[in-house]
Design a binder for these strands. Structure first.
Length: 692
RNA sequence: UCGGGGAUCGUCUAAUUGGCAGGACAAUGGGCUCUGGUCCCAUCAGUCAAGGUUCGAGUCCUUGUCCCCGAGCCA
């Protein structure tokens, strides 16, 4: 039953506007019922979670409609591109689970065909070679309010254009000296249509084509053709390309192509507390604010992976945020929720103390060890156990002890008793301090009757702490990651976004102690350190018997909220009732606007299909009585007692259409505790008389 | 200033295309608990504004406001 509901919600959430278009296209028999999508990265940087959204969208669409999904490197600019990025991009797409065997393509493989189409456009008189300098080009283009000026090159003959373009291709011109432009409209309000550049001269080595080409096509010219060649049906890109769609269409409509794709745009993903642009990411990496492209604080796919996120959690995140055209910034909490809810199901529970505080159990034999068998999944004990040793000296979390505990603190404090998870109950009997007043260790006694952690006499123990044997515990390093920036949108702040980096986005902690079992854990596995968070045994820095743990995400912690509230709330004497009106939600003036009149109840009856509602007709001294619905049936099981009584009606409300009819007012009633009663007016008053 | 897009709970996103504004996250309250976790229940909360059409408007019309994108030989 639960599963059905989940499926329903998942499905209904999944229908975004692009899917709707596809469903309609299929219904209309377009594209022979074919669905073909693609993800076209430029190999000039690492993929981030915004790309993941696009990959999952495109791949998901293809998969759902039995279509195909291509990965195509849009490698039309050898200046910025580097084969180094190709491998990382492929790795990231594969990791996400998008399959594209046999469907990996390169735009550069289409250069020959594109060249032919360019020639075709020249022959049709729709393209020309231009020799404007970059400065002139800019000047001739005009601006938003001023139409552009046609370049002298625009009037060249077809023959001359053909010859010049040939020579461009043959390397006779220097970089930047010649261009091939489309002849469209220099006065178009869409700047993209002011004779856009199709080819530029670039004497550069291409990582796939070598030195075969010295002219390279521009995105607008190339992209639609790439899609056409691959038979892409739905070419999905981000919003900033909306203005380019007319161009996409123009190039496709003016040459002889076999297949005509369509472009659709959706809003790119923005996340708060981070930055997403390639430029910013590159700067963070190059200036060493982070350790590399896979720094676990980065929103790059490799960073998220290194942090310990799973691909499936990214997918469920992508499904939750949906696809739309409105710019938005998704709360990073949604991503955290996605990984928490998965790891809650899949991550085994173990114990690790992040900030150790030594506890000596004074009545525990010096050399004795008691072994407890603790479940890896407390809610599913059949999933396996491990052995946890208890000794006289243990470590607990510093946060789990307070010498001077605040209210509602259920953890260890002098005289208090807590449970050591899976082990026993201990009571604090003393605090031993260093000369400087800091705590050296805490002394406790244990109740030998409470072995296993159950209280022998049924006494209540509210706090449970995780712990590690001092003798058998293993020291490990954890890296505690937090949001990269301490403001929601670093780019919207005064000054440089780098000023808002969170200095505590990474805390390396070498003093953690984990139970012995944890030291044997394989790199690349995920664990919940009980009460602390989910951790990932780093696949790179872990060594045999000495794992290094990345904190993926903390557990939700409602204690910090309780404590914060205690600290901020104390003056509870503040007159709360007076605060609201002062906030100008409702003023005396508003009250004065309410028109209260006496109404005589003419009829009163229950309403079929509504168990709380009464239908009343009330005479307000107007030309005809009003119908009013009121949720007071529980107080008047026999509605007829209301007939002929005078009640108070709010007369100047906007009539409200209800399922059962129009409600033209509101009966005043009062509710105190469980008793509900209509406010009656003096029987001697005439219907319609004002009430103050 | 011109062109293109957009505006629904705090956040993200739905609404059978004119018919009870729903879900998720967050928050709040409660229950449960050997994790102050999970889980369960409940609550809070929204149609940018003003007019108009209509029995009925988030949806249609008019006017306005605000936000995003656009003047790379980048993609």
């Amino acid at each position: 039953m639960t599963i059905e509901i989940t499926n329903e919600t998942a499905e209904s959430q999944n229908v975004n506007f692009i899917k709707e278009i596809i469903i309609q296209d299929l219904k209309d028999g377009k594209n022979d019922g074919r669905v073909a999508t693609r993800f076209p990265p430029e190999p000039n940087g690492y993929l981030h979670i915004g790309h993941a959204k696009s990959i999952i969208l495109n791949y998901g669409l293809a998969k759902e409609f039995g279509g195909t999904f291509n990965v195509r490197f849009d490698d039309t600019n050898p200046v910025t591109e580097d084969p180094e990025y190709v491998n990382s991009i492929i790795e990231d797409i594969k990791w996400l689970g998008a399959k594209f065997e046999g469907r990996l393509f390169y735009a550069s493989d289409y250069f020959e065909q594109m060249y032919e189409w360019a020639v075709e456009l020249i022959k049709k008189g729709l393209a020309y070679v231009d020799d404007l300098t970059p400065e002139q080009l800019k000047e001739y283009r005009g601006d938003y309010n001023r139409p552009g000026i046609e370049s002298p090159g625009r009037s060249r003959s077809v023959e001359e254009n053909l010859e010049l373009f040939e020579r461009m291709k043959n390397g006779e011109f220097a970089d930047g000296s010649m261009l091939l432009r489309a002849k469209i409209d220099m006065s178009s309000p869409n700047m993209n249509l002011r004779d856009p550049i199709m080819y530029r001269v670039l004497h550069r080595h291409h990582y796939r084509q070598g030195d075969k080409w010295c002219i390279y096509p521009m995105y607008d010219f190339a992209h639609g053709y790439e899609d056409s060649i691959e038979g892409i049906t739905h070419s999905i890109c981000t919003l900033e390309f909306e203005n380019h769609r007319p161009l996409y269409d123009w190039f496709l409509d003016n040459v002889s192509i076999k297949y005509r794709p369509r472009q659709y745009e959706f809003a790119r993903l923005n996340l708060n507390y981070t930055v997403m642009s390639k430029r910013r990411l590159l700067e963070l990496v190059e200036k060493k604010y982070v350790s590399g492209w896979d720094d676990p604080r980065l929103p790059t796919i490799c960073g998220i992976r290194r942090r310990g996120f799973t691909a499936s959690s990214i997918c469920s995140f992508a499904e939750r945020i949906g696809v739309a055209k409105r710019n938005s910034t998704v709360d990073i909490g949604l991503l955290e929720h996605a990984i928490r809810s998965e790891l809650n199901e899949t991550a085994p529970r173990v114990m690790g103390v992040l900030n150790p505080l030594k506890v000596v159990i004074t009545n525990f034999p010096e050399d004795e060890t008691i072994s407890f068998e603790a479940p890896l999944f407390p809610d599913k004990p059949e999933m396996g156990t491990r052995i946890v040793p208890l000794t006289r000296e243990i470590y607990i979390e510093q946060d789990d002890f307070r010498e001077d505990p605040p209210k509602k603190y259920f953890r260890l404090s002098p005289g208090a008793e807590i449970r050591l998870r899976y082990a026993c109950l201990i009571r604090c009997t003393g605090v031993v301090k260093n000369a400087d007043g800091t705590i050296k260790h805490v002394e406790c006694t244990w109740d030998p009757e409470s072995r296993g952690g159950t209280s022998p006499d049924g006494r209540k123990v509210k706090g449970t702490s995780h712990w590690v044997s001092a003798k058998f515990g293993v020291k490990v390093t954890t890296r505690l990651y937090d949001r990269l920036f301490n403001v929601e949108n670093p780019m919207d702040q005064e000054g440089n976004y780098l000023d808002y980096l969170n200095p505590e986005s990474l805390v390396v902690n070498d003093n953690c102690v984990v139970e012995p079992f944890v030291a044997t854990v394989e790199p690349g596995t995920r664990w919940q350190f009980e009460r602390m968070g989910y951790f990932y045994a780093d696949p790179v820095d872990s060594e045999k018997g000495k794992p290094v743990f990345n904190r993926i995400v903390t557990l939700k912690d409602s204690w910090v909220k309780v404590e914060q509230k205690q600290q901020t709330a104390p003056p509870a004497t503040a007159p709360k009732a007076e605060e609201k009106p002062a906030e100008d939600y409702i003023t005396i003036d508003d009250f004065n606007k309410i028109k209260l009149v006496v109404g005589k109840v003419l009829t009163a009856e229950g309403v079929d299909g509504a168990d709380k509602l009464l239908r009343l007709t009330v005479d307000l001294g107007e030309s005809k009585p009003r119908q009013v619905f009121s949720g007071i049936k529980s107080a008047y099981p026999d509605p007829s007692v209301l007939i002929n009584r005078n009640v108070i009606v709010v007369a100047n409300l906007k009539p409200r259409q209800m399922k059962f009819g129009l409600s033209e007012g509101m009966i005043l009633a009062s509710q105190s505790g469980k008793s509900l009663a209509v406010l009656f007016a003096d029987a001697s008053m005439n219907p319609g008389s004002p009430v103050s």
